[in-house]
Nucleic acid binder design. Structure first.
Length: 608
RNA sequence: GCCUGGGUAGUUCAGUGGUAGAACGCCUUCUUGGUAAGAAGGAGGCCGAGAGUUCAAUUCUCUCCCCAGGCUCCA
């Protein structure tokens, strides 16, 4: 039953995309049509040869409502390729699709064909015919005209390829009822309040300033504290889990990146070389000299770890090696891709490389997957999607490594994913060229997925750097290499963390856990003593001695999302107690100071 | 990088072809306070940068920079 309803709204959404296309055609007769599928929460359609802006949406929406009132029916007509080519003669994008349907190449949702077809499905509504496999509603009277809304315009490359022309995409929202639409709009409004960029400013967690550089993040005390807490936790857990810590520099010579292959295949994303042949002063004076050395900022930590591994002969007895480093990397992302903390140009990966023998692969994978799951759980993430990215079986040549290695690792990845109970989605062709991977993606406040944890094989670096160890038989053997990050990187993880808890961090993570609020000036001394005592117990505390009313300080404390506000006045001084106010819950009443210390320490210990 | 829309005080935003305003925040003074804003006063803006049109540009035009939402790419 639920499924039927889902299908029904999908069909309505898709039909709305056709109605929108009709409306656009009426208003912009020369429009060229791309595609227009139903999507989560609504639909879109891509249009070429038109200039449509946000301001035009009400006009298009009005036209759509006019069409809907006419009770236009949707009629399926199957025609042959020649007829289709004639029908869509002025629609170059449709002709491209018709060509591919004929060849069996087309396999998107709205024309779900895998096999070469002689016939082409079309839907006619009124005088508008669209290339479409359907299904559609019978007539526009099935559409509730109050339950949809055109949301935004956006550019989108034809077929998602940046070499193709850019079309104008109009996104619409559509639900079964007007109430559902209103509810969704409400959710969007709420989401805005959780935006990490807004909260980052309000809570003084991070700063990005164009004077420093786009995509380069600075961390004021509160943000730096949050980072530190995460990092301390991270180090502790890694040592517990049998990792060793390593460190590597921020730049590496050109030769390193040539050997790793990044010089060649990663050149779009790397900052250009630092060419050393003169002093800065000489460069400023315009003196030119021969470049003696070239260095590149590291976009990845791996090559350093590989060089460390190769620095002496390794025995099978040394394996597995688990080397971890919170390493800051720099990638020159295109300007339009930058966004808050989720996409930056300098970021710190909580990286580790596991180098092991084939027999150890399965066990290491399982350990790592469990480690990832435990970490996400500790930070309160329950809702994330996991993707098993495999190579494209139709194009095996573009990958590093050999068939045997790929088959083994892909099989093992899938096996351990099942064993540790991960509900994953398989994606063929999504693997990196150097190996298959398991990606963990967390949603932000708007439901956009961000890859955080990942677990990836690497067939490239072991080959390029000739990594080897001496096996039990005294023979040289190439080890398996595994990259993995738990957070992904601190920046992005902090972004999703902020949005996940709306800035109200659990006590163990809160940069400031407690404010002590004296009622009057006579209570300042006791407040300071209380603060000192808490500080000695390892609690992160601030004493608010400024001359403001209690009401004002409470308000500020709540807005700063401080987990506990301790109000102290005459009663508390006398009884050596504190009046505890918990964030979001209000006054919990008074308790002995020691009792509060026990309470908060227990919460911190339990990662609450 | 591409498409659409933006950029006015630390923040959120008004406003105007004759070089600007509110609220909060900040500073000072008064207030010594009991669970979400005590009062008064003050400072703070080459209205994102550059060029053009104009007697005159924050306002109109163009270029660039940055921001938002997408696309592409990615941790």
């Amino acid at each position: 039953m639920k499924n039927n309803q889902n299908n029904k709204i999908e069909t309505v959404r898709h039909s709305l995309s056709h109605i929108m296309a009709m409306a656009v055609k009426n208003l912009y007769p020369n429009v060229k049509f791309g595609i227009g599928p139903a999507i989560e929460n609504g639909f879109y359609y891509d249009f070429g040869n038109v200039k449509i802006s946000q301001e035009d949406l009400p006009k298009i929406e009005k036209e759509m409502r006019g069409l809907i009132k006419q009770n236009i029916g949707f009629v399926k007509k199957t025609i042959d390729k020649t007829q289709a080519e004639k029908l869509f003669t002025e629609q170059p994008y449709k002709l491209e699709l018709i060509e591919e349907i004929g060849e069996g190449k087309r396999k998107t949702v709205e024309v779900g064909l895998q096999q070469p077809r002689q016939t082409i499905a079309t839907y006619q509504s009124g005088d508008f015919v669209d290339l479409c496999a359907g299904p559609h509603i019978g007539s526009t009277k099935e559409i509730n005209p109050l339950s949809f809304k055109l949301a935004k315009v956006a550019g989108a490359y034809w077929r998602g390829d940046e070499k193709n022309p850019m079309l104008t995409r109009i996104y619409g929202l559509a639900f079964a009822t007007g109430k559902e639409l209103a509810d969704y709009l409400k959710i969007l409004e709420e989401a805005e309040k959780r935006d990490h960029r807004k909260l980052g400013r309000e809570l003084d967690l991070f700063l990005i300033d164009p004077v420093v550089g786009m995509g380069l993040v600075m961390w004021p005390p509160k943000g730096a504290m949050l980072w530190r807490i995460m990092e301390d936790y991270w180090y502790k857990e890694h040592l517990k889990n049998g990792y060793e810590l390593v460190r590597s520099p921020h730049i590496g010579s050109r030769a390193l990146w040539e050997t790793s292959g990044h010089w060649g295949f990663y050149n779009e994303s790397m900052y250009p070389p630092l060419e050393v042949g003169q002093t800065l002063k000489e460069a400023q004076e315009g003196k030119k000299s021969k470049i003696k050395e070239e260095y590149l900022l590291k976009p990845m930590n791996c090559p350093f770890h590989v060089v460390l591994f190769n620095s002496k002969p390794r025995s099978y007895r040394d394996l597995p090696m688990r080397w971890a480093e919170c390493g800051t990397v720099y990638r020159y992302e295109k300007s339009g891709e930058l966004s808050g903390l989720t996409r930056v140009r300098g970021f710190t990966q909580d990286d580790a490389h596991i180098i092991c023998a084939k027999e150890q692969v399965e066990d290491e994978l399982k350990r790592t997957a469990k480690f990832i799951l435990a970490t996400l759980k500790t930070f309160g993430f329950k809702d994330f999607n996991v993707y098993l990215s495999l190579r494209d079986p139709k194009n095996k040549t573009k990958y590093a490594g050999n068939d045997k290695g790929w088959e083994f690792t892909q099989r093992t990845l899938e096996k351990i994913a099942k064993e540790v109970g991960i509900n994953y989605k398989k994606e063929e062709g999504e693997a990196a060229f150097y190996g298959p991977k398991l990606d963990f993606k967390i949603k932000d406040c708007l439901g956009r997925e961000w890859q955080c944890s990942t677990l990836q094989f690497d067939f490239n670096l072991p080959e390029r750097f000739n990594m080897e160890f001496i096996n039990e038989k005294g023979k040289k053997e190439m080890p398996f290499m595994l990259h993995r990050v738990l957070f992904g990187c601190f920046e992005r993880f902090i972004a999703v963390l902020i949005e996940h808890c709306a800035g109200a961090f659990p006590v163990w993570l809160a940069p400031v856990q407690v404010w002590v609020v004296p009622v009057g000036s006579g209570h300042r001394q006791y407040a300071k003593e209380t603060g000192k005592m808490l500080q000695n117990e390892g609690v992160r505390v601030e004493v608010k001695t400024d001359a403001q009313t209690v009401g004002k300080k409470i308000r500020e404390g709540e807005m700063q999302k401080i987990p506990y506000l301790l109000v102290v006045g005459d009663k508390e001084v006398k009884a050596k107690s504190v009046a505890v106010r918990q964030r979001g819950r209000g006054d919990l009443g008074t308790m002995k100071l020691q009792k509060f210390v026990d309470k908060i320490k227990k919460e911190i210990e339990g990662k609450k």
